[in-house]
């Protein structure tokens, strides 16, 4: 099944439709995604800054790296779970989003990073304690990690700035009904429409008409 059709199918499922159609569930998931970034992001930063010799210098490298490892992974699991929920509910929109594609590329680079440096850096940190020196490749790993995660943040924020191609989406865009400050609502804070309702594709191959209500 082509990726686009798969995306359309995923977002049409009852579960993801329910997420999309509720005005508060999607922002709640997005908030949890951000909360996860705050909780786990600090650990990523501190581990990398320790490897660079900048933070927590009174503690041994292995203390910082090993003691934050599982907590960091738990936080990343929250981030990924929320990310998948957001992706599933607006899969077709994400399919067309260039920042989302770049973000997934960066994410795969992060996976490559962890595969490359797990053995050569992260499982060798107790050696750094003994020698008292942090080798260049550990600093390289930390720097790359900081750069990659910063790119993730930039791309993540960028996703919200891409106008969805309304003529291509097999979905009907509904504007928020509950808005209390409609006249001053800034469009560029969240350019992604708040709720998109799945509509079956036209059998004649015509794109379903987008209606702004």
């Amino acid at each position: 099944m082509p990726l686009l059709e798969f995306a359309q199918w995923v977002q049409s499922t009852e579960f993801f439709t329910a997420i999309r159609e509720s005005w508060y569930v999607y922002p709640a998931i997005m908030s949890s995604h951000l909360a996860g970034i705050a909780l786990a992001g600090g650990m990523v930063l501190m581990v990398d800054l320790r490897l660079l010799g900048l933070a927590m210098r009174k503690r041994s490298v292995s203390d910082v790296v090993n003691q934050l490892r599982w907590l960091k992974w738990a936080g990343l699991a929250v981030i990924v779970t929320c990310g998948i929920l957001m992706l599933g509910s607006k899969a077709e929109e994400y399919y067309y989003n260039i920042f989302f594609r770049v973000k997934m590329t960066v994410l795969s680079l992060i996976l490559v990073h962890s595969l490359v440096f797990r053995r050569s850096v992260y499982s060798k940190v107790s050696e750094y304690d003994k020698t008292g020196k942090i080798p260049g490749r550990a600093k390289l790993a930390a720097s790359l990690s900081l750069i990659l995660w910063t790119c993730m943040v930039i791309c993540g924020r960028g996703i919200g700035y891409i106008e969805p191609p309304l003529d291509k989406l097999h979905a009907r865009v509904i504007q928020q009904q509950h808005s209390t400050t409609e006249s001053v609502n800034r469009s560029h804070v969240s350019r992604v429409p708040s709720a998109i309702v799945w509509k079956l594709p036209d059998t004649h191959g015509m794109r379903s008409q987008m209606e702004r209500m």
Binding site: I37, A38, L39, G42, M43, L45, M46, V153
Partner: peptide, 14 residues
């Protein structure tokens, strides 16, 4: 702003 709260909230969370 996001990087800022990753530092502040992140370290407070630790």
């Amino acid at each position: 702003h996001i990087l800022g709260f990753a530092f502040s909230v992140g370290t407070i969370a630790i």
